[in-house]
Design a protein around this nucleic acid. Structure first.
Length: 292
DNA sequence: CCGACCGCCTGCCTGC
DNA sequence: TGCAGGCAGGCGGTCG
């Protein structure tokens, strides 16, 4: 599920339960996810206090006392749910599609009585434990681009990191080394808002001197707006665990173009039909009538 | 250096 | 109804 807004929603949902608490016990139910868990993972977490929970791109960072940070990534299908103290209700008896207890891979038992359970059917997620000191200078964080919701991101920055690129603009938006946190959905949605075709070369965002073009001045605010609105809505597909069933789960949202192939373009007076094209093995959705 | 492609996993939907 | 095939919100490695 998780692009930047979903990860931010998860962060906000988990923070009240996690921050200030200690890990009383950590259960790993397999040796790892996409990669093996680090050595002595559970033992190194046990007894540690979570001092802060932050987000960088699509990563969650739980800074612990003792100098290490728990790095979490949800991959394609990861989610957390909170059970016990701090949860809105009893453990769920109903799991959304695919989210069976068989895919509960890690359980964090906290000293405040809560259990934070990580579920991930496809196991594309990741967990690591790394020194907090200098974390930004080590992989994968050293390679991440600008945070699109930060003050550092604007049309000028977008132009700078696109100048001279021969990649399609859609591919450039998905490149985490340029902009960190955009995924397929919000890249499609931002391009629609900016009326730009995903097929155009990224280089059109900068002029010959690397200055932002009108396209960049449309796209940068569109990226920011779609992400801000999605965060505001609690993520497009995840609802936070303040929901009555106590679960971080699905909240279907309506998109302008994403997954709407064949539907009418929602832009007033456009009348176009949403198309789908494959780019780099990913689907891009756009309106050929109004996105040029 | 860049960009295209593949593999990692499982579940769900489609079409035959 | 059954089943093969395609597809999915991410990432990192390889190859040209």
């Amino acid at each position: 599920m998780p692009e930047l807004p979903e990860v931010e929603t998860v962060r906000r949902g988990l923070a009240p339960t996690l921050v200030g608490a200690r890990f009383a016990r950590v259960e790993t139910r397999r040796g790892g996810l996409r990669a093996p868990f680090p050595p002595r993972f559970a033992e190194r977490l046990t007894g540690r206090r979570i001092e802060a929970l932050t987000r960088r791109a699509k990563y969650l960072l739980a800074a612990l006392d003792g100098g290490e940070t728990l790095v979490l990534h949800l991959g394609m299908s990861g989610s957390f749910r909170i059970e016990g103290a701090g949860a809105a209700s009893a453990p769920p008896t109903h799991f959304p599609r695919g989210k069976s207890p068989a895919h509960d891979h890690v359980v964090f038992v906290l000293d405040n009585g809560a259990r934070v359970v990580y579920n991930d059917p496809r196991r594309f997620g990741a967990m690591d434990l790394v020194p907090t000191e200098g974390i930004d200078r080590r992989p994968p964080f050293d390679a991440l681009g600008v945070e699109p919701l930060s003050d550092d991101f604007d049309a000028k920055r977008l132009a700078t990191l696109s100048a001279g690129s021969r990649a399609p603009i859609k591919a450039a938006l998905l490149d985490q080394k340029r902009i960190a946190g955009l995924g397929n959905i919000y890249a499609c949605e931002a391009l629609w808002r900016a009326r730009l075709s995903p097929l155009r070369p990224a280089a059109i965002l900068a002029d010959a001197k690397g200055r932002p073009t009108a396209a960049a001045r449309a796209l940068a605010p569109a990226i920011r707006a779609v992400l801000e609105q999605a965060v505001e809505a609690g993520g497009s597909t995840l609802r936070d665990h303040r929901q009555p069933d106590g679960e971080l789960g699905y909240f279907q949202h309506s998109f302008a173009v994403y997954d709407r192939e064949g539907a009418a373009c929602p832009r007033r007076g456009c009348g176009g039909i949403i198309a789908r094209v494959a780019q780099g093995g990913r689907s891009s959705f756009y309106c050929p009538a109004c996105q040029k």
